[in-house]
Amino acid sequence: MSDQNVEPSTEGWFDKENNIRKVLRVLFVACAVFLVVDIVYWATGYDKHPYLKWETWPGFYAVYGFVACVVLTLAAKYILRPLVKRSEDFYTKGGDDA
């Protein structure tokens, strides 16, 4: 089976900081492109057939996606975790678990 957590003998593509930067750069560019596309819709008055007026605001989906994820993460980290975190053997120690 496995030799666990051994440092890899050879450096792979994803191990190089340079390549990770490249991936991130592609992500940034893609984000920018789709933000621009949405602004173009708004500027040209392109009919999105929206159900709700928010959908026509430029960058609504981008901002919503970003903010939703940041809020989700920070709420889980700073609110939920302090409330519910227990030791890993919480249910097995003491022997009163089914």
Binding site: L27, C31, C69, R81, V84, E88
Partner: peptide, 29 residues
């Protein structure tokens, strides 16, 4: 696509900034 890309962006930035909660061995009630 914009929604998902910006979700991805949030993930990448939070991880790079060290704000994403570290994985820890724990039981969550």
């Amino acid at each position: 696509i914009a929604l998902l890309l910006f979700a991805g962006l949030a993930f990448a930035l939070l991880i790079r900034a060290g704000l994403y909660p570290a994985e820890v061995r724990a039981t969550n009630l």
